[in-house]
Write a protein that binds this DNA or RNA. Structure first.
Ligand SMILES: [Mn+2]
Ligand SMILES: [Mn+2]
Ligand SMILES: [Zn+2]
Ligand SMILES: [Zn+2]
Lengths: 162, 162
DNA sequence: TTAAATTTTGATTATCTCTATCATTAAGTC
DNA sequence: GACTTAATGATAGAGATAATCAAAATTTAA
């Protein structure tokens, strides 16, 4: 199809990701659509953890001519998650947040004051998780870990204002 | 108030818990009500991880004369969670499950096939979590960890039927 | 013990997130 | 380009949780 969508600033890393996505689509006889690509691209360009709603907002702003519906966002996120290309985080009832899972696995530290999310990986923990699953005869598919608390910055602000 | 509610089989542990709850209520000028106590008691007696709906069901069966509304369940669970007396687990969009936080802290291993939840504690992981928070200048309030996968039993069944 | 002040309750409605449906449109195939 | 199939957007529908509000219960202070 013939769109004047601006696909500039594509890095090699993104091209690889996109190729992987197209391959995945082909393998499952799914069709390639601009909506799907735009969703992948927007996730890639954002280093935030996005709610489907926020992602939809971004896409409406950047590609208004597509008139992408919210249903397509949900559908594509599920598709991407099922294929392990994105990961979702659940924080209580505030719904899910998605991020591109193409980066390495990591865990999250979440500030309960300002909502800032810090990512980290700890090999010792990863190692123990596998060990524990093994002990229970459990076939681990996935795992997630969150540390909740007050971030460095909020601690500083609290010191000043409280 | 004058109810014939059956509060038998109260352990000392429960009495302490209840006292703590009453103290909490008083401190915040909240009022003591039978509904609140029954919710605490039912959570205490159940060793399951309960959805608000399941908890409501249990209470309707055990204390039908109270005609406890679902709204009160939600309100009280939020109250208890805010005061760190119960903890909730989020399973994506399938809502939350609650458990009394009075027992020792632990993490969860969740079977994606049958939903069974296995609890565990690993000191090495606990230790690392504190260390990591410290490294980031983060004041940890809480943390949670979930391992998702196929439990021993479901693995066996899969072997037989697949 | 009673009366006043305040909070909580249950019922209900509203909201928010996510899924299902379906007619229309767009991709992939030849 | 025509044919087949899948994807899309709009919208209705579910399910979980929050908000509203009049009635009831609890606490407090006579
Ligand atoms: Mn992340
Ligand atoms: Mn538990
Ligand atoms: Zn913060
Ligand atoms: Zn299982």
């Amino acid at each position: 199809m013939n769109s004047q969508t601006d696909f500039t600033q594509r890095t090699v890393e993104y091209e690889i990701l996109l190729a992987r996505f197209k391959e995945l689509l082909k393998k499952n006889t799914y069709k390639y659509t601009i909506q799907r690509e735009v969703i992948l691209e927007t996730l890639y360009k954002s280093d935030e953890h996005l709610t489907p709603e926020a992602l939809h907002q971004l896409i409406k702003e950047k590609f208004p001519e597509l008139k992408t519906g919210i249903a397509t966002i949900y559908r594509t996120l599920s598709l991407l998650e099922d294929s392990d290309m994105v990961t979702s985080l659940s924080f209580g009832s505030q719904g899910k947040k998605y991020e591109l899972g193409a980066k390495e696995h990591h865990d999250h530290m979440i500030c309960t004051k300002c909502g800032t999310i810090t990512e980290f990986v700890d090999e010792a923990i990863e190692e123990r998780q596998h060990r524990i699953a093994e002990e229970f005869g459990f076939e681990m598919q996935d795992h997630s870990m969150q540390i909740y608390g007050i971030c460095k910055n909020c601690k500083k602000l609290r010191f000043i204002y409280d």
